[in-house]
Design a protein around this nucleic acid. Structure first.
Lengths: 247, 247
DNA sequence: TCGTTTATAAAGGTCTGACCATAATATAAG
DNA sequence: CTTATATTATGGTCAGACCTTTATAAACGA
């Protein structure tokens, strides 16, 4: 007989998390609003502090709450907390559960949609934000400094312009992942040649979005990501990643 | 002056989680493998049980570990744990941080990519799995029963056929979300008419993938999701969702 | 001998209460 | 009024106890 998976009973901390989450929803708490202190929650919910803390931990990891000493427990502003998911994918990447190829393929697919939407929906504000990071990149380039963080900010400005918080989150997860795991310490991000090329591509991307030219924006984005792919694949540690894909 | 966000110090439980995660990676533990017991971890890491437990909680929420009484702490098999992310989006949906429209738009975009890849990559096994759930749906339809769970399984078989674990995860999150939050209790899933239509669409989807006709598969998927959109929008509670989109 | 029932023990789950570290706040000093 | 100091409330951590469940072993009975 085929076996069914054993079900897991719900722990108390799950109920605590659920209760607090519903409390936020029902009372329409907004980002920054404060919740009762841990000890008050213990009293109100009638459970121990450990259970309350584990429940809070869950909501913190999901990016729903922020917990800090003296500040108390506050509702977190959304759309900026991709770290846990990035960690998850980093883990899955390192355990060979997902390949470099799958991650890049997913990123390419999602970025294409996003850049298309961005070209359709970007407003003045969005464009100004992109322009801002583009300028910073140029400055830094002149001074021969690293561009990584501005690069990321520029991409995130495009995400914001897509006006879709869901795709934005998925896109941000993958961008962060590549930034942290793949490109950190990559030759491509240090050498002058590729960096100039990156800068040019970003300018072109910006222009296409500004002109609402979705087709061109997609083309540029595709080229841009191909460049990343090539850069990584050419490096020493790129070898086993190629092997990974063949299987 | 613009204010910088206050940084948060890393808690001990974060370090515990990191340490255990690295332990899994370095020792190449596989799904099902057992880790030391909580008490042993306390001893080895030299921290209190609460810190260990909060660290384990994090890894459990990320879907890296499974923790159950008597069974101990085991490495979890991947690609099946979207629940926390579904909860997160449900929360964001209920707090009006993301709209129904954004969720559906994201789903449509991701499903299109997935179905395209599935049409290119589905093997016999994948097709058999789809066929299997299609058959179950037909049986149940004859008996006038609900199809929801088989519907979900069928879609998940398509996800698997895409051979991209990342897109698979994102797709699964959104499918689960719609299943749980939007379609549960929806008239559309109960009435005979729409259900027949759903069944036909799924058959067509299956045929397109089987024939490696990506173009047609995308077309059918698009039509299928439009049907969901219409069904939900026509319902009572669909009103405010329409309003939501206008803004 | 084999199956069933009953103990045992070990795992995570929960609780209690204490103390620690830190930063916001109140208070006192200049 | 500003600056230094003390207070205190907050989350963070610890220690140890007991609870609940269940895999396993032991005892029992057919």
């Amino acid at each position: 007989m085929a076996k069914l998976p054993r079900l897991k009973k719900e722990n108390l901390y799950e109920k605590v998390a659920e209760e607090i989450r519903d409390f936020i929803i029902n009372n329409e708490l907004k980002p920054g609003d404060r919740l009762p202190t841990e000890r008050e929650l213990v009293e109100q919910l009638g459970v121990s502090r450990s259970s309350v803390r584990e429940g809070l931990r869950k909501l913190e990891i999901l990016g729903i709450l922020e917990v800090r000493p003296k500040e108390g427990i506050t509702v977190k502003s959304q759309d900026i907390d991709v770290q846990p998911m990035v960690e998850k994918f980093t883990y899955r990447y390192k355990t060979n559960d997902v390949s470099f190829f799958e991650l890049l393929e997913a990123r390419e697919a999602i970025e294409e949609i996003i850049v298309k939407l961005a070209a359709q929906r970007a407003n003045e504000e969005d464009l100004a934000e992109m322009r801002r990071w583009l300028n910073k990149m140029e400055e830094k380039f002149e001074r021969g400094e690293y561009l990584a963080s501005e690069d990321l900010k520029f991409h995130q400005a495009i995400l914001a312009a897509s006006k879709n918080a869901v795709l934005m989150e998925f896109g941000a997860i993958l961008e962060e992942f590549f930034q942290e795991t793949i490109l950190a310490g990559s030759k491509a991000s240090r050498e002058q040649g590729p960096r100039r090329r990156t800068l040019e591509e970003h300018k072109e991307l910006y222009e296409s979005i500004k002109n609402k030219d979705a087709k061109r924006a997609i083309r540029v984005m595709r080229k841009h990501l191909e460049a990343i792919r090539d850069a990584v694949f050419q490096e020493d540690n790129g070898e086993d990643k190629v092997a990974e894909i063949e299987k």
